[in-house]
C-alpha cells in the first residue's frame, strides 16, 4: 500500500510495521521541535499505540514520543 495518510488515521494493523514521513504541514507551530525529535521528510517511524481519542505513541529515531492527535493530523506518512 503506497497511499499517503495522515499519521492520525493509520489503522491499528500497521502497529509494528514501519512508516515513512512524506511531509509535515507548515501550519504546525511545533514543526521545528518535531524535527529535532526526528520527524522530518523521509524519516522512518513505528506506531506503538493509536487509540483515539488518546494521544498517539510513536517510536522514532530509537526513542518513544507521544503526540496529541491534532499534531498527528498534520503529519503525512506512507507505508513501505
Amino acid at each position: 500500500m503506497c497511499d499517503i495518510l495522515k499519521l492520525s488515521e493509520v489503522d491499528n494493523c500497521s502497529n509494528g510495521s514501519s512508516l515513512f514521513i512524506t511531509s509535515i504541514s507548515d501550519e504546525l507551530d511545533s514543526k521545528a521541535k518535531l524535527e529535532s525529535l526526528g520527524f522530518y521528510k523521509s524519516s522512518k517511524l513505528n506506531i506503538i499505540k493509536n487509540e483515539p481519542p488518546s494521544p498517539m505513541i510513536i517510536r522514532i529515531k530509537g526513542s518513544i514520543i507521544s503526540i496529541s492527535r491534532d499534531i498527528a493530523h498534520k503529519i503525512f506518512v506512507k507505508n513501505e
Binding site: 494521544p55 514520543i65 503526540i67
Partner: peptide, 9 residues
C-alpha cells in the same frame, strides 16, 4: 492556550 502536546516517554 492549546491542548497540543509533544512529550518524550
Amino acid at each position: 492556550s492549546s491542548s497540543s502536546f509533544i512529550i518524550e516517554f
